[in-house]
Simulated scan of single mutants.
Amino acid sequence: MHPLDKFLKKRDYDRATLAKKANVAHSTLTSVVNRSTSVYDMRIWVLVTLIDLIQGDEPDANMDSVLQELSLYEAQYGFDEALKELKEKGGYIDDGITE
């Protein structure tokens, strides 16, 4: 799951809600996700709108806290994608260890 979607899902929001709040087309955010845009390559308005969206419930939210959370999700997303690719290519050996 893309970091943006994970961030929104954690708070029971979705891209449509964010698009409406930012006054942009839903397809704009969909393209961010479909292109697997890095957190650090997202436009500043996306981050500012995320902060604005959650500020009512999380008054201490700021650019640093949002970027930190998105970065953690991005690291997990990258790991998940790499593991998926390994499995598809047959280079993954299941060692029987579960999460």
Results as ranks from 00 to 15, higher is better:
Y92D: 03
L86V: 06
G78C: 14
D52I: 06
F79I: 14
S71I: 00
D5E: 15
A19I: 14
S36R: 11
V24W: 00
L50N: 05
V66P: 00
T37H: 04
L83Q: 14
S38M: 09
K10M: 07
M1Q: 11
A22V: 09
A82K: 14
H2R: 04
S38Y: 14
R15K: 09
D14E: 10
S65I: 13
T28S: 09
G56S: 12
R15Q: 13
A25H: 13
I97N: 06
V39L: 01
D57A: 15
I51M: 12
L67F: 12
R35S: 15
I97G: 01
V39F: 01
L53N: 08
M63Q: 01
S27A: 15
S27R: 12
A22C: 12
K21F: 06
A19K: 11
Q68I: 03
D14C: 11
K20C: 13
I51A: 03
T30W: 03
E88N: 10
E99D: 07
D80R: 14
T98I: 08
S65G: 11
F7P: 02
R35I: 05
T28N: 03
L72N: 11
D95N: 06
V66F: 01
G78K: 15
V39I: 04
L53K: 06
D12T: 02
T17G: 08
